[in-house]
Design a protein around this nucleic acid. Structure first.
Lengths: 128, 128
DNA sequence: GTAGGACCTGGAGCGCGGTCCAGGTCAACG
DNA sequence: CGTTGACCTGGACCGCGCTCCAGGTCCTAC
């Protein structure tokens, strides 16, 4: 092939990892867990398309909001079916997750207030 | 001893666990990790005072805000030294933790917005 | 005195989310 | 051609925060 390297289609796993801000091992792990699947070069190397990168960003967002891998797999399966009949299920899953996140934020805020109270208490003790 | 059961001093580990909303194993684990220490009855059973319960509540608050056990141990050590010279250090530790929690809340809120965007997108798709 | 239940200890096991490793293949460079 | 570095696989390993288990003690009630 006379195609120059720069013009090849998609990113290598190392490039994709750097781009997405995750480790190479994490990308391979997600693939094992069926959260993600990629094209391969004839020799078996993974190639990440822009769409793949967007999807990885979605996965990362879900992870960072504490969604377990198991649940992410459910979502990935729904999306992977690429059937509009699953859209309701996708909305339900994300909506439930949204509730979880909101609950966790409220919980954090409540506990934060305790921590701040404790700080204030110690400030008083060290001043008085 | 003629002392009635109800008048004995402090709660058993089972009672304390129920009261504090954690498992018995967790209380014993915290003790192994030097986050906590309790009086014992002559026969070796743990007894939890009201002060112990308050401390467990503090530990629980720190855990729920994501402080690692290792860091909780640092804090427990400072408090355990019962030396006013450590109060500055306690304030510093809690203040750092407060920053961590605030960061995490902000992160969650940012990611939450993405999740909500996704929900809106799917709603549009299923409506359109 | 004996049955049951709560407690004790030390240590193994678990679920999670990766992370690392060995042993091999592949691609580009000089 | 050989070297170098990124990639491949399957599987072992890790840190965390518990959780469970075996084998034993102790207390209470009948």
């Amino acid at each position: 092939m006379s195609q120059p390297t720069a013009a090849r289609d998609g990113l290598s796993v190392g490039e994709a990892a750097r781009e997405a801000g995750v480790s190479i091992d994490t990308l391979r792990y997600y693939e094992r867990e069926h959260l993600l699947s990629t094209e391969r070069t004839p020799s078996g190397h993974r190639r990440y398309s822009p769409g793949d990168l967007e999807w990885i960003a979605v996965l990362t967002c879900l992870r960072e909001t504490g969604m377990p891998i198991r649940r992410m797999r459910e979502f990935a399966t729904l999306v992977g079916e690429d059937d509009d009949a699953t859209i309701g299920a996708r909305i339900d899953l994300l909506t439930e997750h949204r509730e979880d996140v909101l609950r966790r934020i409220r919980e954090l805020e409540a506990n934060l207030a305790h921590v701040e109270g404790k700080i204030a208490y110690y400030r008083g003790r060290s001043a008085g």
